[in-house]
C-alpha cells in the first residue's frame, strides 16, 4: 500500500511539472510584455501599422493580419486534403492499404520544419514567382507549406475519429438504402464531427505557432498584404527574427507580440470549441468518437 502511495505521489509531481511549466511560461511572457502594451496603449499596439522598434514605434497590425491570413490559408489546404484523405482511408479503402498509407502520412510530422521551409524556398517560391507573379515569398507560399505541415495532424486525428464511429451507424444507414458516400457525409462525418473539430484545432495550433518554415517563405515585410501573392510577416516570425538583437523596449515589445499571439490562439481555440459544442446533430456519437479518439 505504501508503495502505491509513493507512486501516486511521484506521478502527481510529474503531472504538476507540466502544468507549472505552462504557468511559468505564461506568467513570464505577461510580466515582460504587459508593461510595454500599457506604455504604448493597447489600441496603438494592435491597430497601428508602424513597426520601427528602434524609434520606439510599436504597431503589430500587419503581423496580426499576416498570422491570420497564413493560418486561414493553411487550414483551407490542410483541412480539404487532410479530411479528404481521412474519409478515403476510413470509408473507401481496404484496411491493408490503410495500414501502409496512414503511417506514411504520419511520417510527414517527423520532418523538421526547416526542411519544409527549404523546399518552399527552393521549389515553391520560384514557381509562384514565375507563374503567378509577385516576389514568390507570399501568403500563398506560406499557406501551402503550412498546409502540408498540418496534414498529418488533421489526417491522423480525423481517421481516429471516423474509425471510432460505431459500425452499427454505417450498417443501419446502408440497410436503409443509402450509398456509401451518402452514409459518409450524412451519418459518419456528422457523428465524428467533434473529433474532426479537435483535429482542426490541433492543426490550427501548429499553423499559428510554426516559425522556422514561415520565416523562410513568407518574406517578412512590414506592409499589410493586399493579395495572397504579397509577402507578410507573422507574429511568430517577428519574434524569432528580431529576438536575437533586441534590447530594452524592443525586447519587451517582442514579448508583447507573444502575449497577442497567446491571446489569438486562445480565442481561436474557444471559438472552435464553442462551434463544436453547438452542433446539434450526432452529439452523443460525436462525444463517443472524441472519447475514443483520445
Amino acid at each position: 500500500m505504501r508503495k502505491e502511495k509513493v507512486i501516486a505521489g511521484v506521478l502527481a509531481a510529474l503531472a504538476l511539472t507540466a502544468i507549472s511549466a505552462l504557468a511559468v511560461i505564461a506568467s513570464f511572457i505577461f510580466k515582460e510584455g504587459l508593461p510595454i502594451i500599457a506604455k504604448v496603449g493597447l489600441a496603438e499596439f494592435i491597430f497601428s501599422g508602424n513597426w520601427h522598434p528602434l524609434d520606439g514605434e510599436f504597431g503589430i497590425l500587419p503581423m496580426i493580419v499576416g498570422s491570420l491570413a497564413v493560418t486561414a490559408g493553411a487550414m483551407v489546404i490542410g483541412v480539404v486534403f487532410g479530411l479528404g484523405c481521412a474519409v478515403l482511408l476510413t470509408q473507401f479503402c481496404p484496411p491493408r492499404i490503410v495500414s501502409v498509407i496512414k503511417p506514411s502520412i504520419e511520417l510527414l510530422a517527423g520532418i523538421p520544419s526547416v526542411v519544409y521551409g527549404f523546399m518552399g524556398v527552393a521549389i515553391l517560391v520560384p514557381l509562384i514567382r514565375e507563374h503567378l507573379g509577385g516576389p514568390g515569398l507570399s501568403v500563398l507560399a506560406s499557406s501551402v507549406v503550412l498546409g502540408v505541415m498540418v496534414l498529418p495532424t488533421v489526417t491522423s486525428i480525423s481517421v481516429d475519429a471516423l474509425q471510432a464511429v460505431p459500425r452499427a451507424y454505417f450498417e443501419g444507414s446502408v440497410a436503409l438504402g443509402a450509398t456509401v458516400w451518402q452514409t459518409t457525409h450524412m451519418v459518419t462525418l456528422r457523428a465524428a464531427r467533434s473529433g474532426i473539430v479537435a483535429a482542426v484545432i490541433l492543426g490550427m495550433g501548429r499553423a499559428v505557432g510554426e516559425t522556422m518554415a514561415v520565416i523562410m517563405v513568407a518574406g517578412n515585410t512590414l506592409d499589410l498584404p493586399h493579395s495572397i501573392l504579397d509577402p507578410v510577416r507573422t507574429l511568430t516570425s517577428n519574434i524569432a527574427l528580431e529576438m536575437g538583437y533586441a534590447a530594452g523596449d524592443h525586447r519587451k515589445a517582442l514579448f508583447a507580440t507573444a502575449v497577442v499571439l497567446l491571446a489569438i490562439i486562445m480565442v481561436l481555440n474557444s471559438i472552435a470549441l464553442a462551434v463544436s459544442r453547438r452542433l446539434p446533430a450526432g452529439r452523443q456519437a460525436g462525444r463517443a468518437a472524441k472519447a475514443a479518439a483520445r
Binding site: 501599422g49 520565416i215 517578412n220 515585410t221 512590414l222 506592409d223 527574427l241
Partner: peptide, 8 residues
Amino acid sequence: SRKAISQD
C-alpha cells in the same frame, strides 16, 4: 520601405 522583404 515597409514593402522590403526581410531575411535573417
